[in-house]
Structure formats: C-alpha cells, structure tokens
C-alpha cells in the first residue's frame, strides 16, 4: 500500500470506521482515538497491507483495540451518554430511536457484529475475519442479536 492508497483509505473509510467505533463504544473521544490509532497502525504497516484489504485491516485493528480497551478500563459501565446530536446528524424517527436503544442493550460482541453487518455490509465470513470468530459463530451471534432487537422493538410497539 502506498501513501496514496493510505490516503484513499482515510477518505473512504474514516467516516465508516468512526461510526462503527462510536456506535460500539458510544463514546466520542474513545471512538476518535480508536480511529486515529487504527489509521496510525495502517500507516506503520502500509508496506505489508494490500491496498484492497485496507478497509478490513482498519476495522479489524479498531475492533480489537476497542475490545482490549474495554476489557482494561471497563468504562462501558461509566461511559458518558452519547449526545443525541453526535449520534445522528439528522432527526431520527421514532423507530430509529427505539432501535438505538435496543442496540445499546446488546452485548459488545452482538452490537459489533450488527454494526459491521448493517453499517458496512460485511458478510459473515468477513465479520469473522475482523472479529476472529468463525462464520458459524458470527451467524449464531447475529441471529441472536436480531431476535433480541426484534423482541425489543415489538415490546416497545406494544407499549406504544
């Protein structure tokens, strides 16, 4: 990967990686630091990274850094509430807000897998490559997360 390839990765994937980190950590500064750390890692190892694999490399690095960071600090329990305006730039519909709440209820792995699947459109295999899980684990985890989200949505609708 050349410097030009690296800069292309910045332009193409920085926003998506930031979304993924922000939704995963629900912490703006943490998400920003993780994004910068992932790109720094990519720059350091750009000679070993295929330009076509830049995106998955970034998400893999960011994901594992996030996991490690959460394991060390356990700040997930004390994180500041993500400002509404930072979470979304446009007014969210009601369903969208409920879905965000449901997403917050997922565990870390489930949420990450859902985000990787829905935000970035990764396949089970690719998600497995990023998270270190096999394809079956990804599939099972995602299915459980979907069912959990659906149940939450249905329950909220019933209340409303």
């Amino acid at each position: 990967m050349t410097a030009e390839d690296y800069n292309d990765c910045v332009k193409q994937y920085a926003d998506g990686l930031y979304r993924f980190m922000l939704k995963s950590t629900r912490h703006v500064e943490d998400a920003r630091d993780l994004v910068q750390s992932a790109f720094e890692k990519l720059w350091e190892h750009r000679g070993d990274v295929n330009a076509l694999k830049g995106k998955s490399y970034l998400f893999t690095i960011a994901y594992h850094k996030m996991i490690d960071q959460n394991r060390k600090s356990r700040r997930m329990e004390f994180r500041e509430i993500l400002p509404e305006s930072a979470a979304e730039s446009r007014p969210a519909p009601h369903l969208r807000k409920v879905l965000e709440e449901a997403l917050d209820r997922l565990n870390e792995r489930q949420r990450s897998l859902v985000l990787l699947k829905d935000y970035e459109g990764y396949s089970y295999e690719e998600i497995g490559g990023i998270t270190g899980l096999n394809e079956s684990q990804v599939k099972v985890t995602l299915h459980r997360a979907r069912v959990q989200l659906k149940q939450y949505l249905v329950s909220v609708e019933n209340v409303l």
């Binding site: 920085a14 990686l17 979470a87 446009r90 969208r96 879905l99 829905d118």
Partner: peptide, 10 residues
C-alpha cells in the same frame, strides 16, 4: 432490526 448507518462524519 437492520440498523441504518447515521450520517456521521469523522
């Protein structure tokens, strides 16, 4: 349950 990506910009 499909989460749509927000228009967040780094």
């Amino acid at each position: 349950t499909v989460v749509l990506p927000p228009d967040l910009v780094f």
